[in-house]
Design a protein around this nucleic acid. Structure first.
Length: 987
RNA sequence: GGGCGGUUAGCUCAGCGGUAGAGCACUACGUUGACAUCGUAGUGGUCACUGGUUCGAUCCCAGUACCGCCCA
């Protein structure tokens, strides 16, 4: 059955992908013929996500490297998988529940909710995998991993325990970025700064104990105060009046003469009545605002720092949902008697509280004024709500302790980051790294492997010395709830069994019978208190120590998603088991990822792999840029400029989309994607398709079989294209080895379209009628095979389909050996000859077109003076020159006939008689224009060669080349001038 | 404010000390043994600006302007 006119991507893609999968073509090690391994870890997409342009780009590049290495015989693994994406997924599922009118997460409880999440994962988790398959991604799907797989969970928990035991993880009450929408802490990196229009409110805080001072109110030209007023208050400025309820101090700069004398005195916090000290700190900038800053250590990062330095208390005045938390807040009411107006704010949203406080300040006369202000407000990158700095207990990775090996690895080149400038970003971030908050108040994720127990033997409780618990002591414990006042103790272990042992060790030192209590797991601290109290009460009655229990509860929080994806390289390869894959493929070869997650992911993988297995996770990191729309805007749903890769694949085929992304993948530069470009590369696929179709029509594929070595050829044309093929193979390999994907694509485009289709196919047409026909068929078959092979990593579908419909094949293209021939195939003589032939044809075509010779008209041609090389070239290639230049029959003459076109080429010239047909004016203009251009070039060359410094200092070959070019140019110029002179004789 | 980039044809971008390139768009012609998802020919550039280094600068260095991105 003859081939169709175009490749039917829609029909073929699914069929071909299926065939690859059925053949196990993508399995780890498939087609391996050499010992070297090649491994890429996919940056795991969110399990509930869908393919966007960034994924398409990222995965195309990975697939190219993977397919290329696999064809070269490397033992290749492209490890796929998905990320559970804590916040994102939990958000999606909660939204789904709300949409379908089901009870919310809190109503159904943790266990039921997690079931829903797993259901959702089952339902939508395959989407992205199928979309990657549509793109042609040749991952080993049999090894598909998920960050919530049981073995991956084990790895994550084990690493947590490991890092905890090494002292790299700690728990602490710190100010964190709190997302009031999701009610969880988030890391610095998940916060975006958004500039907003707001106000700066000036508030007057009265000084305590009747203190007053003179405050300057007018100044002379040099800024010296000239007038003062007596004040009994201090004015502070704030963008967030609602935080004033948590103020515990006022900072002034010690060098600020206006206020320095107040340092050590106190002010009274309006509404609250709290006495707050005036402290000295450089954070207060005399030139900003009023120069006096209210300090709320529990709700502002800068204030926290001031508080730490000056010993101020931190009072949290908000709940996790950013509503005011006052009435039952002992910290808030300690040492003061808040007004009723203040207590009435309890439970209000922070924004509402702000309005009320400003209104109260105005009413009560302590609002000094309002200035409009534009400032940055931190927002959650997922929730888009304003972040609330919040004082909470969280888990942190002490990054300072593990960062150095990650820095050194890149400095010393163990891992290389490309392009180089991204290494700078990497260093900059790592060298200024902050502790990493890794606990999240979410349900979907890896629950922290830490259990808490009541501190039942706090220091203030004293045993009477007999090491047994008597009735009085039990009563004391129960009644006072002594253990209820101390902070819980905690232990970290891989599982409950492990942690039980640790608690048992603690209990061993306690009095009888507590030292024999059984450790049990309960849900919460409250339940633990109940159970323990109950157990003690029972013991008091029955004195049976075997029923005594020591209840512990697990930390309800989960780990930051990036903590688990930080283990992706070892986790997917089976760590902590010593698997064969781990031994073989780790460290992996290259990571291909977007610049936006250098901090989130790359840096953390480096730190964690080095901390856990003391090895870099990958040898090379290739960082790519963003795919933007054709105007350079970031694609976003709200702008409506999102290009859906799947729609593009439907319209143009996966190969066209892939080729476009590849050709645009210049290192470190954003891609501006337009459909026109994709269409162009779809056409490129069609071009190759039709070249193969042409070959089919000319019997090229009859009896054709895959062959590594080029056929022996004698015809110059065939020798030439074989050499060109050798060149392009070297070029493609060099480009891919250097991650110059764009160079590889462009070299192939220029070769396949510009050399094979434009010239070689045309040259072959007359050759099929000569004795060189068989050789030409063999050459064409071999060359087209090489096109398919070399293009396969970029355009896998069309090439595999062509492979199957042409010749007889022992293997699918996906496993066909990558060629190793190179420029040794170039025959310099053939190269020179074909360059000459091509330029002759181009000259003639150009001349014809410019003097408006009808395209279809065949013209005779007269050969004038011609050197030996030219004569030989002409003799060997006469048929194709006649055909492509639309000429008929060469004759020889000593001089050009009147009214003829003149064609000057290296080594001679030709004339095309056009008596009566020629437009003499046009021909004169053409010659004059050509001469002018030539003269300009020659003038430049003469200038250079006339400069003794150039001849003396420039490399010899540059000087020689300039001389040769000048000679040739002058020769050509002479011919053109002569022709021009002849024409002038006529008209 | 700190850091990192960019500025080359109408558009999108390569290039990079020694003759300025590609694709798209545009103009004219054209169905010639595959391809109109095509062919042939052509138009189009003070390589942002100013200095410097060099025999020679689009390329290296310094500065200026404008535009991006990241971090405060």
């Amino acid at each position: 059955m003859p081939m169709d006119k175009t490749f039917n991507a829609a029909e073929a893609e699914a069929r071909l992908y299926d065939a690859w999968e059925k053949a196990g073509a993508f399995r780890a090690g498939a087609n391996a013929s050499r010992p070297e391994t090649f491994c890429i870890m996919i940056p795991p997409p969110n399990v509930t996500g869908s393919l966007h342009m960034g994924h398409a780009f990222n995965n195309t590049l990975q697939d190219i490297l993977t397919r290329w290495h696999r064809m070269r015989g490397f033992d290749t693994l492209w490890q796929p998988g998905q990320d559970h994406a804590g916040i994102a997924t939990q958000m999606v599922v909660e939204r789904e529940l709300a949409k379908s009118g089901q009870p919310g997460r809190r109503e159904m409880g943790r266990e039921a909710f997690l079931e829903k999440v797993w259901e959702w994962k089952e339902q939508s988790g395959g989407t992205i995998v199928n979309q990657l398959k549509r793109l042609g991604a040749s991952c080993d799907w049999s090894r598909n991993a998920f960050t919530m797989d049981p073995n991956f969970q084990r790895a994550v928990l084990k690493v947590f325990v490991d890092l905890y035991e090494k002292g790299f993880i700690y728990r602490g009450k710190r100010l964190v970025n709190w997302d009031p929408h999701f009610e969880t802490a988030i890391s610095d990196l998940e916060v975006e700064q958004v500039e907003v229009n707001g106000n700066m409110w000036r508030l007057r805080y009265p000084l305590a104990d009747g203190a007053t001072y003179r405050h300057p109110v007018a100044f002379d030209e040099e800024g010296r105060p000239t007038e003062w007023e007596e004040r009994d208050y201090l004015t502070v400025a704030t963008t967030r009046p609602e935080t004033m309820l948590g103020d515990t101090g006022i900072a002034v700069n010690p060098s600020d003469e206006r206020y320095a004398h107040l340092i050590g005195k106190e002010a009274i916090l309006p509404l609250v009545g709290r006495r707050i000290p005036i402290v000295a700190d450089d954070y207060a900038d005399p030139s900003k605002g009023t120069g006096a800053v209210k300090i709320t250590p529990a709700h502002d990062f800068n204030d926290w720092g001031v508080g730490q330095r000056t010993g101020l208390r931190a009072i949290n005045v908000m709940s996790g949902r950013a509503t005011m938390f006052l009435v039952e807040n002992p910290d808030f009411t300690e040492d003061c008697t808040p007004s009723d107006e203040a207590l009435a704010l309890d439970g209000l949203d922070r924004h509402e509280a702000r309005k009320r406080i400003v209104a109260l300040a105005e009413e009560q006369g302590w609002l000094d004024g309002i200035d409009q202000d534009r400032h940055m407000v931190p927002h959650g990158d997922r929730s888009k709500v304003a972040i609330e700095p919040m004082l909470t207990d969280q888990w942190f990775v002490d990054t300072a302790k593990i960062v150095q090996p990650a820095i050194d690895a890149v400095r010393t080149g163990r891992t290389e980051i490309l392009p180089e400038r991204d290494a700078k970003t990497y260093f900059h971030w790592l060298e200024n790294i902050e502790p990493w908050c890794i606990s999240r108040q979410l349900w979907w994720g890896h629950q922290i492997p830490v259990w808490y127990g009541l501190d039942i033997w706090p220091a203030r409780f004293e045993d009477d010395g007999d090491d047994t618990l008597d009735e009085v002591e039990i009563f004391e414990l129960l009644e006072d709830g002594a253990f209820n006042h101390a902070d819980p103790t905690h232990h970290c272990a891989f599982d409950f069994e492990g942690v039980s042992e640790k608690f048992l060790d603690d209990l061993a030192s306690l009095p009888q019978p507590l030292n024999n209590a059984r450790v049990i797991e309960v849900a919460s601290r409250a339940e633990a208190i109940d159970r323990l109290a109950q157990a003690l009460a029972d013991y008091n009655l029955n004195e049976d120590p075997t029923h005594l229990v020591y209840p512990v509860w697990r930390d309800p929080d989960v780990l930051d998603t990036w903590f688990s994806s930080g283990l992706w390289p070892i986790g997917t390869l089976g760590w902590p088991e010593e698997t064969a894959e781990l031994a073989r493929y780790f460290p992996t070869n290259v990571l291909i990822t977007g610049f936006d997650i250098i901090f989130f992911w790359v840096a953390r993988m480096m730190m964690m792999q080095l901390a856990v297995v003391n090895e870099v996770p990958f040898k090379t990191v290739y960082v790519h840029a963003l795919v933007r729309d054709e105007k350079g805007k970031k694609m976003s749903k709200s702008l409506g400029n999102v290009l859906d890769p799947l729609e593009l694949i439907d319209e143009f085929g996966a190969d066209a989309v892939r080729f476009t992304l590849t050709a645009m993948a210049a290192m470190g530069r954003d891609l501006k994607l337009s459909t026109a470009r994709i269409q162009g590369y779809r056409n490129f696929g069609t071009k190759l398709w039709n070249a193969c179709r042409f070959a089919e029509m000319n019997g090229v594929w009859e009896g054709h079989a895959t062959q590594a070595a080029p056929p022996a050829a004698t015809a110059t044309v065939n020798r030439w294209i074989i050499g060109e093929t050798g060149r392009v193979r070297e070029e493609v390999d060099a480009a891919l080895a250097a991650y110059r994907f764009d160079s590889a694509a462009n070299a192939l485009y220029a070769f396949v379209w510009g050399k094979v289709c434009d010239w070689y196919v045309e040259f072959s047409k007359p050759l099929f009628d000569t004795e060189a026909a068989a050789e030409t068929r063999a050459t064409m078959g071999w060359v087209l095979d090489q096109c398919m092979i070399l293009l396969h990593p970029i355009m896998p579908f069309i090439t595999e389909d062509l492979w199957a419909t042409t010749g007889s094949r022992t293997k699918m293209l996906v496993h066909t050996d990558w060629p190793s021939f190179g420029a040794e195939l170039v025959d310099p003589a053939a190269d020179r000859e074909m360059s000459w032939v091509i330029s002759l044809i181009e000259e003639i075509r150009s001349a014809r077109a410019q003097v408006h010779v009808p395209a279809g008209l065949k013209l005779p041609v007269v050969q004038l003076a011609l050197d030996a090389a030219g004569r030989e070239a002409l003799a060997r290639n006469e048929a194709l020159i006649l055909r492509l230049a639309r000429l008929e029959g060469f004759t020889e003459a000593a001089s050009a006939p009147k009214g003829a076109l003149t064609i000057a080429v290296e080594g001679g010239s030709f004339a095309i008689p056009l008596e009566g047909v020629i437009d003499i004016g046009a021909e004169k203009a053409r010659l004059a224009k050509t001469l002018e251009k030539l003269e300009k070039d020659m003038a430049g060359l003469r200038g250079r060669l006339g400069n003794p410094n150039f001849v003396a200092s420039a490399p010899e070959e540059v000087v020689d080349e300039a001389r040769t070019r000048l000679e040739q140019g002058e020769e050509e110029g002479a011919k053109l001038s002569a022709a021009l002179a002849r024409l002038s004789e006529i008209a």
